[in-house]
């Protein structure tokens, strides 16, 4: 039981990092990144590939972060000329390209089989202690990611990002470089997502193209919308709730008599209905974005 709870906790924390990253893009800046899973994949594959060559995991994280950051910056620049909906479609296409490469470059990525036996962290410990230590580590990383996201959101940079989301022309007229702001926020978010991917691959000790399906991005979107678009705390809340829900529905076959195929359908359906329901009934999410109070006079 403890191990199960720790497992869900680890997964929730990993997803929360991802949700913080997506919230910076979608919630704060209004950049509809449908290809978030590509950044996660870059991080995960970097860690897994380097691990299979016995390179220390920290190097894998660094390489993943650099690659993902560069990819994020490029995607952000692509956003320059595009209306937001086509940009969203373009990001989806890019993520599918990444998945196809992962699927077809067998020698490098293990192809459809993916890469398994990725060694985790705290390998020296016994099972339960190791889960606990892993959980603690990832919670610390999540804490750092949360602080970073919060500081960025609440400072001048966050103010500019929100203004870009709401009225980009106004932001540009006030000497804010809209392109650079988007490029930088994409790079930062991509780095966060790659860290999430690295931990994900290490925790389930596997990464394959099946993990890079668009549904993985969709799951994170659900977390961010349920938590409240634009609210940093909301992203974490949403991540925890949706992880519990999505993981819980693994046991759907214990409750009703359906085939494995149908059970998979039910799990996806539940997530889809939750997202659609929130969009229709409570668009602002559980923890809505706040209008900040005025600073006091000195």
């Amino acid at each position: 039981m403890v191990e199960y709870l720790l497992g869900v906790g680890i997964l929730a924390a990993v997803y929360a990092i991802n949700a913080l990253s997506l919230n910076l893009q979608v919630g704060v800046t209004g950049l509809l990144n449908f290809g978030q899973v590509a950044f996660v994949g870059i991080g995960a594959y970097s860690v897994a590939i380097l691990d299979s060559h016995d390179v220390p995991w920290i190097v894998g994280f660094l390489v993943g972060a650099v690659l993902a950051g560069a990819a994020g910056a490029l995607v952000g620049r692509l956003g320059r000329t595009l209306a937001s909906d086509y940009w969203a479609i373009a990001t989806l296409a890019l993520a599918e390209l990444v998945r196809l490469v992962a699927l077809n470059q067998d020698g490098f990525t293990g192809g459809a089989q993916g890469l398994s036996a990725v060694s985790g962290i705290w390998t020296g410990m016994s099972t339960t202690a190791r889960e606990a230590a892993t959980f603690a580590t990832i919670v610390v990383v999540l804490g750092i990611a949360y602080l970073v996201a919060r500081r960025v959101r609440n400072g001048q940079y966050g103010r500019v990002l929100v203004l870009i989301r709401e009225n980009p022309d106004l932001a540009a007229s006030l000497r804010h470089n809209v392109v650079s702001a988007k490029v930088r926020v994409m790079a930062l978010s991509a780095v966060m997502a790659s860290v999430c991917g690295g931990f994900y691959a290490m925790y389930i000790s596997f990464i394959g193209p099946g993990q890079l399906l668009p549904f993985a991005t969709f799951l994170i979107f659900t977390m961010v919308v349920v938590g409240g678009l634009g609210n940093t705390t909301g992203a974490v809340v949403g991540a925890v709730l949706i992880t519990v829900l999505y993981d819980g529905t693994r046991f759907v076959r214990d409750w009703i008599d359906v085939s494995a195929d149908q059970a998979a359908g039910i799990r996806i359906l539940v997530i889809g209905v939750v997202l659609l329901g929130f969009l229709l009934v409570r668009t602002e999410g559980l923890v809505p974005e706040k209008v900040k109070a005025a600073h006091a006079r000195r």
């Binding site: 509809l32 919308v225 997202l275 969009l279």
Partner: peptide, 11 residues
């Protein structure tokens, strides 16, 4: 609307 249409597609 765009996120919603994606959600509908999934549903």
């Amino acid at each position: 609307a765009l996120i919603g249409s994606l959600a509908l597609a999934i549903v």
